[in-house]
Amino acid sequence: MSDLKQRLSDDMKAAMRAKEKDLLMTVRTILAAIKQQEVDTREDLNDTDVLAILDKLSKQRRESISQFKDAGRDDLVAQEEMELGFIQRYLPEPLSDDEVQSLVTEAIASSGAESMKDMGKVMAILKPQMQGRADMGKISGIIKSALAG
């Protein structure tokens, strides 16, 4: 079992004992997503795979928050923000803007990317380094502007 899955499992048990309903619900949601992926792929997930799932879940929460704010549903915004906070506990520290820029520049240089055609090469280098630590949509925009200019 990966360290991250073990930590999630331990936190679920602790939340049950402490009767922390909200944390328990969120951790169960995370573990269910992990289990679903394991069933679909028929293999145990490692920490990198679990991070990808956590990243996906946090992105879903951010999108929901945006939509609920637009609809004026403050009750649902609060719920999603709480869940996002719990999910972010398991993600590594986010990268600073300087770190992101440095990694993008380094990846462009090492891949020999010269135009937008080479964007996939750059993303392939960056994705494992930045998984769970930066919004890949924003990273894509940074790469596009670097390759265009």
Rank of each mutant, 00 (worst) to 15 (best):
Q37W: 00
S64P: 01
S140A: 10
G85P: 03
K117C: 02
S140G: 11
E106W: 03
Q6L: 11
E114K: 14
S115N: 12
L24A: 11
L91D: 01
M119C: 06
K35I: 00
K56C: 07
Q101T: 13
D55K: 06
M1Y: 08
A71S: 13
T105I: 02
E81F: 05
V50D: 00
G132T: 03
L23M: 14
K117F: 09
K69T: 10
I87P: 01
E38Y: 02
A107N: 09
I142M: 08
K19D: 13
D44G: 10
S2P: 13
M116V: 08
A113I: 01
M25E: 15
I125T: 11
L31N: 03
E81K: 15
S110K: 12
P128E: 03
L95F: 10
P128F: 02
V122K: 05
D10T: 11
L57V: 01
K56W: 07
A109N: 11
P128A: 04
D74I: 10
G85K: 05
R17M: 12
M16G: 10
M130R: 04
Q101I: 06
A134E: 11
G149R: 09
M119K: 13
L51E: 00
G112S: 05
V77H: 09
L84N: 08
K117D: 15
I53Q: 00
Q79F: 09
L54A: 00
L24W: 09
S64W: 08
I30C: 01
D47S: 05
A15Q: 03
G120I: 10
D47N: 10
D47Q: 03
M16W: 06
L23N: 13
R28A: 11
M12G: 05
A78Q: 14
K13R: 13
D10E: 14
K121Y: 06
S145G: 02
K59T: 14
F68M: 15
P128L: 03
D74A: 13
K13P: 04
E43I: 14
Q6F: 10
D3C: 06
T48R: 15
E80L: 03
P128Y: 03
E83A: 15
K13Y: 06
V100E: 07
S140P: 00
E81Q: 14
A113D: 03
M136I: 05
V50C: 01
M12N: 07
G85H: 04
S102R: 15
M116W: 06
Q36E: 13
I108G: 02
K59Y: 11
L31F: 04
L45Q: 04
A146I: 00
G112N: 04
A124Y: 07
M1H: 09
T26F: 03
R73G: 06
A15L: 04
M116D: 07
E38C: 07
E43C: 12
A14M: 10
G137T: 04
R62W: 09
T105N: 09
I65Y: 07
L84S: 05
I142C: 01
T41P: 06
L147P: 05
R62D: 12
F86Q: 09
Q67C: 02
K35R: 12
R7W: 00
L45M: 10
K59L: 14
A15V: 04
D75T: 10
E63H: 09
L54V: 00
K127H: 05
D40Q: 15
M82E: 13
D135M: 01
G120E: 14
K117A: 14
G72H: 07
Q60S: 13
S110I: 12
G85W: 02
Q6G: 04
S110F: 08
P92E: 08
S145M: 07
